[in-house]
Structures are given as C-alpha cells and as structure tokens.
Amino acid sequence: MSRGSPHPHPDQQPPQLTADMLARLKAGDKLCCRDFSDFLMAYLDGELGCDVACRFDQHLAKCPPCKTYVETYRATVQLAKESCCPKANPQLGKMPQELVNAILHAVTSEKKCE
C-alpha cells in the first residue's frame, strides 16, 4: 500500500481506514498529512493507540501546515458552537407571539375535545 492511494470516500467506515493506515505505518511508511487529516478527530479525542498517537505527535511537531490545520479545525468547532448557541445569539430563538398563541390554542382545543 502506498501513500498515493486515492482519497477514501467521505463516508468510508473508520475501521477500514484505520486498518489501511496502520498497515502502512507498520510497513515503514511515514505518516503523511492526508493520514493526519483523516484521523485528526480520532487523534484529538484520544481514540488512537499510544504508538499511533505518538507518530501523530511527531508529525505534528514537524509539520507546520498540519499544526495550523489543527488550530483552525479546533477554531471551526468552537465557532460553530458560538455562532449557533441561543444564549449568545438570542435572535436565533426569537419566538413569534403568533406561534405561542397557535400552540396554546391547539393545546386548549385538544383538551376541550377530551
């Protein structure tokens, strides 16, 4: 297996990807940026074994683009939370009075029919 293998399908199951990547690492291949990118979430969540995680640590220490990628990946997650959080963005949950009335009217009507 070589680093030149095509980019996996976006939904390819992790176990298959993991086996392929592990096999390449064991065969002596260096960890490439694509592997680092594909398994970044598993790496950050602590789901990779110690040996593999150490290889990721080493790659990160030597690869400025991947280091920047990790920073911006984490920033992306944080931005998504901040941008959609109703507490920080109250306008996202602004509830029209008409909707409140419609809900209460529907509930009341149902109860009267019971």
């Binding site: 680093r3 030149g4 980019h7 490439c32 940026c33 694509r34 592997d35 990118s37 690869c63 400025p64 683009p65 991947c66 920047t68 990628y69 920073e71 911006t72 920033a75 931005l79 901040e82 941008s83 920080a88 963005n89």
Partner: peptide, 27 residues
Amino acid sequence: FSPEGYVTKPTDTWVDRPTSMEQAELR
C-alpha cells in the same frame, strides 16, 4: 493532498477575534 499525501494548499492561521460588530457578522 498531493499523490504522496502531503498538503498542497498553503495553510494559514486565522485572524484574531474581531470587534463585537465584526463578531456578529462572523457568526
């Protein structure tokens, strides 16, 4: 990535958190 699996597009850090008005636009 290149066929060898390395980054091809230049990566760059992102700007620091902007002012409150810019923050609304950012969100």
